[in-house]
Each structure stands twice: as C-alpha cells, then as structure tokens.
C-alpha cells in the first residue's frame, strides 16, 4: 500500500449559483520517500489537490487514504493531529506569523503537539541550526530576506518530523539564487527519507523531483506512475 492513495477524488466549489469542479476524478499513488512535483497551469486544481493531500480540505467525493487511514472518515480534531504530526506545509508567501520571532514561529507546531516549553525550544533550535539560521532566532520575519523566511518556514514544517512535506510554489517569491538554495534543502530532506510533494508551474523546479504529475482542468494528464 502506498503512503498516499486517492480514489476518484472530486472536489466541487460552490460559487453561489454555479458549481465549479476543481478536481474531476483524481487517482494518484505516492510511495513513501518519493520526491514528486505536481505541475499544471493556474486554475488547474493543483493547489486544491495539495490541500486535500495535506488534510486541510476534504474531497466532495472519492476516497483519500493516507498511511492506511481513510481520511474522509476522520474527525476534525484527528485531521488537526495529522496536519500537526504527519504533514508539513511550505507556502509561496511563507505564512510566518509576523509578530512572533523566528524561534517562536518554529516552536508553534510543537506547542500544538503539547510539548513542554523547554523541549520544544531545544528541538526548534536544532532544526533552525540545520537550515543555517541559528544566528537569527530572535529576529522577526520582517527582518529577514525572502530566502531566510522560506528557510524558517521549512524549519517550521519539518520540526515535528512529519512523513510528508508539502510545498506550494515554494520558490515563487524568491530570486533565482535563493530559490535554488531552498530547492537544495528539499533535495537534502529527500535524501534523508522525507516524502516531498512540490506544487509548481516552474519546470526548473519540477526537474528536481523524481516524478512529475501533470494536471489540467482537474484531471491528471501525465505522470501517475511511480518512476
């Protein structure tokens, strides 16, 4: 059984009178330890798919099985626990909390996991060290460069040691150099055994992955077989 399995997933958005079908029968299978890129033009449904994989959103129809768990049958608080422990998100706009310093931002997932203050400070410091930011602990996000902010976001995503790392256009707001640094971090994490899924429309980014899944108008057009 693969780590991620979707069966005929359909996702409709209710826009008042019109229903918009964002996903139309998605079947994918991703094994543990894969590095997958999901590509497609804007509006193709790739972000929606990522939200469903990350348990932020639920499909209208179809089944999603994550690590042998039928996600559609889980309670909301169980979904929160999965988002906390099994999934790490990295966003295009970083989504750091502006009023918290770097260390506090990275501590957040551990706090929601119920870890004691002392333990989580240590763990967060270790992770920030591994992304090369141990000298920026007390800085606010606004005092950092884009590349540094994204590294903080990655640290926050992996601090709870999740099985899956989900990234939505992680280099979209970065210059080439910073983007390439971030991608190198993803490659390192992949080498350490993390399962990584990057949503992008940048071919250079997608080429870092072992497999590219192409999605157009809510349907998979290419790449649904493990490489």
């Amino acid at each position: 059984m693969a780590l991620i399995e979707t069966k005929d997933i359909i996702k409709d958005y209710d826009m008042g009178k019109v229903k918009v079908r964002a996903l139309n029968g998605i079947n994918i299978s991703i094994e543990k330890g894969e590095f997958v890129a999901i590509m497609g033009p804007s509006g193709s449904g790739k972000s929606t798919l990522m939200h469903i994989i990350g348990c932020l959103d639920a499909p209208t129809e179809g089944n999603y099985i994550l690590d042998n768990l039928k996600v559609s049958q889980l309670h909301k608080s169980e979904l929160a626990a999965i988002r906390n422990k099994e999934v790490g998100f990295v966003f295009q706009t970083f989504n750091l909390l502006p009023h918290l310093n770097v260390l506090k931002n990275v501590e957040l997932p551990l706090m929601y996991a119920g870890m004691s203050s002392k333990a989580r400070i240590k763990q967060a410091k270790d992770i920030l060290d591994s992304v090369g930011l141990s000298d920026r602990l007390k800085h606010k996000p606004s005092e950092l460069s884009g590349g540094q902010r994204q590294r903080v976001a990655i640290a926050r995503a992996i601090v709870n040691n999740p099985a899956i790392l989900l990234a939505d256009e992680p280099t979209g707001n970065l210059d080439t150099q910073a983007g390439s640094d971030i991608l190198s971090i993803f490659s390192e994490l992949h080498a350490k055994g993390h399962t990584i899924i990057i949503v992008t429309h940048d071919m250079a980014v997608a080429n870092r992955a072992n497999r590219i899944i192409k999605i157009i108008d809510g349907k998979i057009v290419d790449g649904n077989i493990a490489a």
């Binding site: 929160a80 989504n95 929601y112 926050r156």
Partner: peptide, 13 residues
C-alpha cells in the same frame, strides 16, 4: 490568515 496558518500547522478548533 494567522488563524489559517495556525490551523495548517496543527491547531485544533
């Protein structure tokens, strides 16, 4: 947005 981020990283309702 902050609430969204907190929910995404595992905050429960």
């Amino acid at each position: 947005r902050e609430i969204g981020v907190r929910l995404a990283i595992g905050a429960r309702r």
